[in-house]
Design a protein around this nucleic acid. Structure first.
Length: 941
RNA sequence: GCGGCUGUGGUGUAAUUGGUAGCCACGUCAGACUUAGGAUCUGAUGCUGCGAGGCGUGGGGGUUCGAGUCCCUUCAGCCGCACCA
């Protein structure tokens, strides 16, 4: 019988669906949770790059199941987002319609590849049953604050009680700005004022912040959605703007986000990326008094040891201090400079690092030496980091150095032997001098001279804290996440404005469903798209959403017009999969206790500073309130590489419709044009297909070489515009899903990026056909014998089991497939059940369809998924087949320890006569004996 | 500038984790069966040399009986952060 993959694959896909073979339920077995990053269903459908990670995780999920685990392996859709909305704006099509159509297409494509997803657990972030819990989590964050001392979130009521009794007191709480007030003050405030103050502490809060405003998209964007000053989606310019927005206090969790990295198995590179993004820096805050004014400010430095080298101070132009310190005669110059800085885009500031700045007229007092130094205002100091003010030490900071040179300010070297005549000495190595300088003194006789930099930093920290001049401070680069978007296609906020106070819609009334609008663009008055919604007001008394024309009535208030950003829905979806239909809770206690967290998470590394930070934050919050059972959501992370496209080119002779083959193109003046890779085979163009591809090529002429038109090629991103998209359906159609699965894995390590090249696919296809043929005789009849296998055959089987087990555990699927191929080569025509049956099981994670068919032909009535993965018993093999090498590629190597005083010859002789050697060699001469003078001998057979 | 990852035949890659470098495939060449081959099967295939041999894991150095693997240094490519004090 021929290997008819079409028939087989259809048959078993239907069987799996009907029998719900992949359904996961809580049971007595140990659990294993394998998760893929769920896709955003775009209009383009899946290309061959998407399934790479899905195939890898599918293999692992199937393997774990065969090993006796209860495997949770779900799939769903991240279905809120910008592209569907942009499309809606252009065409008027409701995003829900296009999203549904795209999801159906994705599902169809995914089904063809034979994944073991439990589709009963599918989630879609745009469905009310799902986003109810996104809204719920937001409300929980709104009603929580973060205690820095305990490093944990607590209900806001605790804080309110504290304010009522003690005012702001001395609690160390994550806050937007530091406030101090008494209990009396708190109790005297009205509700509005108290709410304003509480916003300063809530984990989900409304804040006046600098945001990345993208006018073209008409919305704000999070930091990770902006790269090089332009939006990731669309590449539109982004400007800084102060706006009132919902924010999440992600920064409160910075230390835990950093510490957690040491407890999870993620790649070094992605951990490093997150560490950079969190950007912890330990330093000192020092209070600086402004001379002759009743003003002071705080600077942040990591180089407290350089306090004696301060020759000026710098404030960020956006800092509120600028206004306070500027003297009358410098006012005009400062105003002009601030105006200039405001006019510069983020992008310009990023690229152009020329030195600019202005003197404020004021002087700051160095608290240690009492010396006065000028205060400058300059854009190289950023308002958003530290305190927005620095002490400048030009001798040991290159930026301060450039500024000092430009404005002709003094430079005092503080490190012995450092030459600062040409550039600053930034290294943190050396012995401190000039601290204080000869002939000068500091308060309390403080000196750092003769210390190493490390010692000097510690000494200064101690001195500063003891003398109340400042405090030790840890700063993070990680910013709070801006949580509102001025868009339609996202989760609505469960918030209404009661007399201007943001108020949560009661938990029992959730979800607040996204209202219908007649237009997806902002309103004429500049309101977000939800401003177009007619039924969008909250009736407090009747607890329901009502028409907004009623707003003037007593208990009816407007609802928030912003929607949540893309990462809202994707931040806790892994928890929802554990209990996706529960409408009483995000997930039940049972489900949470059993499934815990994701054991293996597979997805692209492009989410390193977005989704993978947000969901860690989100999970930590849910952990604090007892919903999640583990501090980290994803125990092990594997980042699959990108599949790049391999584009093909044709060369058109300028101003003609004639195309010249690659080898001859240098003789003409040609324009390379992308050509659809699907009409090119092994770089040879299908000329007829090309003519019908697009009307303008109908009567194209060709200059051929050797009768063929050869195309050029290049590796580029796989995208529609480059006509290099290879569709997985096409491969499934021509070679079958099992071949596609194995070929994608055979291409190389999962983590590695590589261009898609269909050239090698035949090798895998041949293997599957050869494997299939083992089960049939010359007449095509199924023919498996019950004869006892030979020792040679058992050896092949066992070493294959050993190798494949080892490789799957290590996520090395390309090498396991090599092992299968070697196995098939060695078995020749072996058709013995005792050999073939275990092989079918260990191949099934890779090629589920063909193995399911063979498994049933072998007489089994249940799915091959319910078989048990054969284990390799090394001891058994050594005892029974010692005359055969046990390592996979036929080598045996072992070490004997012999007395140290033996001669080289004696060692060799003894080694060969050794019982263990004899057992392995079976009398035959070894290929190589490595003798180390002294005692160790290594024998290679 | 700081940090991370990678570098092996014509190509994708492998190496029992310090032990015969190049497994398994693709491609190429030769042969077989064929009217035919973009089907199938068999064999060869790192470079160099007629040959014995020599040379080979980006370059240089080191540790070791032994290095693709460990250490130092250098080059190249990719990625992250970046006027972060």
């Amino acid at each position: 019988m021929e290997y008819n993959f079409r028939e087989i694959e259809q048959k078993w896909q239907k069987y799996w669906a009907e029998n719900k073979t992949y359904k996961a339920e809580i049971n007595q077995k140990p659990k294993f949770y394998v998760l893929d990053m769920f896709p955003y269903p775009s209009g383009a459908g899946l290309h061959v790059g998407h399934p790479l990670g899905y195939i890898a995780s599918d293999i692992f999920a199937r393997y774990k199941r065969l090993c006796g685990y209860n495997v949770l392996h779900p799939m769903g859709y991240d279905s809120y987002g910008l592209p569907a909305e942009q499309y809606a704006i252009q065409t008027g099509q409701h995003p829900e319609v296009t999203t549904k159509a795209n999801i159906n297409r994705y599902r169809e494509q995914l089904d063809k590849i034979g994944f073991c997803f439990d589709w009963d657990r599918e989630v879609r972030t745009c469905e009310p049953i799902y986003y109810k819990w996104t809204q719920w989590a937001f409300q929980k964050m709104f009603n929580s604050f973060f205690c820095n001392k305990e490093q944990k979130a607590f209900p806001i009521d605790i804080l309110i009680a504290h304010f009522e009794k003690e005012g702001s007191g001395d609690w160390d709480i994550a806050e937007t700005e530091h406030l101090e007030f008494s209990a009396a003050e708190w109790n005297s405030w009205d509700e509005k004022k108290r709410n304003d103050v509480l916003m300063n502490y809530r984990i989900a809060f409304m804040g006046e912040t600098m945001v990345n405003w993208c006018p073209k998209l008409g919305t704000v964007l999070a930091n990770d959605e902006v790269v090089d000053g332009v939006s990731v989606r669309g590449g539109f310019p982004v400007e800084q703007k102060k706006m009132r927005q919902w924010c999440l206090r992600v920064s409160a969790y910075a230390q835990r986000l950093l510490d957690g990295l040491d407890t999870i198995q993620w790649s070094e590179s992605i951990k490093e990326t997150q560490k950079n993004w969190i950007g912890r820096s330990e330093g000192t805050e020092v209070l600086i008094k402004v001379a002759d004014q009743d003003v002071d400010f705080t600077i942040f430095t990591t180089r407290a040891d350089t306090m004696f080298g301060v020759t000026f101070f710098v404030l960020a132009p956006e800092s509120e201090l600028v206004d306070k310190v500027t003297t009358a005669d410098q006012r005009a110059a400062v105003d002009e400079y601030v105006k200039y800085v405001k006019g510069r885009t983020e992008r310009e500031r990023m690229i152009d690092h020329t030195v600019t700045g202005v003197f404020s007229g004021a002087y700051g007092v160095n608290p240690i030496t009492g010396e006065k130094c000028p205060i400058y205002i300059a854009e190289y100091v950023l308002a958003g980091y530290g305190t927005g003010a620095i002490m400048a030490v030009p001798a040991h900071d290159s930026r301060d150095y450039a500024f000092a040179k430009h404005f002709n300010l003094p430079i005092i070297p503080l490190i012995e032997g450092a030459d600062v005549s040409e550039e600053s000495y930034d290294a943190k190595e050396g012995i401190v001098m000039n601290s204080p300088m000869a002939g000068k003194s500091a308060i309390d006789g403080f000196t750092l001279n003769g210390l190493t930099i490390k010692e000097a930093i510690a000494a200064t920290k101690k001195f500063v804290s003891e003398h109340n001049l400042g405090r030790v401070k840890v700063n993070f680069r990680l910013r709070d996440a801006i949580f509102s978007r001025q868009r339609y296609w996202g989760e609505p906020f469960p918030v209404y404005y009661k007399n201007g106070i943001p108020t949560m819609i009661p938990e029992e009334c959730l979800p607040i469903e996204l209202p219908e609008v007649d237009k997806f663009l902002p309103t004429e008055t500049g309101e977000p798209p939800l401003g177009n919604a007619q039924v969008w007001a909250w009736d407090e008394e009747n607890r329901k959403v009502v028409d907004k024309s009623l707003v003037n009535e007593k208990t009816i208030f407007p609802i928030e017009l912003y929607t949540m950003p893309g990462f809202a829905g994707s931040s806790a979806y892994y928890l929802r999969y554990m209990d996706p239909r529960n409408d009483k809770a995000l997930l039940s206690e049972d489900a949470s206790a059993y499934w815990q967290n994701v054991d293996l998470y597979v997805g692209g590394s492009e989410h390193a500073t977005g989704h993978l930070i947000y969901s860690r934050f989100w999970n930590k919050f849910l952990f604090d309130i007892g919903v999640s059972k583990k501090e980290e959501p994803f125990q092990k992370l594997v980042n699959q590489g990108m599949i790049q496209g391999r584009s093909n080119f044709v060369y058109r002779i300028k101003d003609t419709n004639t195309f010249v083959s690659l080898g001859l193109k240098d003789q003409y003046d040609v324009t390379p044009i992308h050509v659809d890779v699907n009409i090119v085979k092994n770089d040879v163009l299908d000329i007829e297909a090309f003519r019908t591809w697009r009307p303008e090529y109908n009567n194209a002429e060709f200059i051929l070489e050797d009768g063929k038109y050869v195309c050029g090629w290049a590796v580029e991103k796989m995208s529609k515009s480059m006509y290099n998209v290879v569709n997985p359906d096409l491969i499934v159609e021509t070679n079958g899903a099992d071949t596609l699965r194995m070929y994608e894995m055979f291409l190389g390590p999962v983590e590695q990026s590589k261009p898609w090249d269909t050239k090698g696919i035949d090798g895998v296809y041949r293997f599957l056909r050869r494997f299939w043929a083992l089960f049939f005789d010359a007449n095509g009849n199924f023919c498996v014998s019950n004869d006892a296998p030979s020792a040679e055959e058992l050896k092949t089987l066992h070493k294959t089991i050993k190798k494949v087990t080892f490789d799957i555990e290590n996520f090395s699927f390309n090498t396991s497939i090599s092992a299968f191929m070697i196995c098939a080569n060695e078995l020749g025509k072996c058709n013995k059940r005792q050999i073939l049956e275990p092989l079918v099981i260990i191949l099934s994670p890779f090629a589920p369809h063909i193995t399911e068919e063979l498994w049933h032909l072998l007489g089994n009535s249940t799915s091959v998924c319910d078989a048990t993965f054969p284990t390799f018993d090394e001891k058994y093999l050594v005892e029974n087949f010692v005359k055969y090498p046990i390592s996979f590629n036929g080598k045996v190597r072992f070490t004997l320890e012999l007395p140290a005083d033996m001669s080289k010859e004696e060692v060799e002789k003894t080694a060969l006569a050794n019982e263990q050697t004899q057992k392995f060699t079976n009398g035959a001469a070894p290929k190589k004996v490595i003798v180390v003078p002294g005692k160790i001998v290594n024998i290679v057979l």
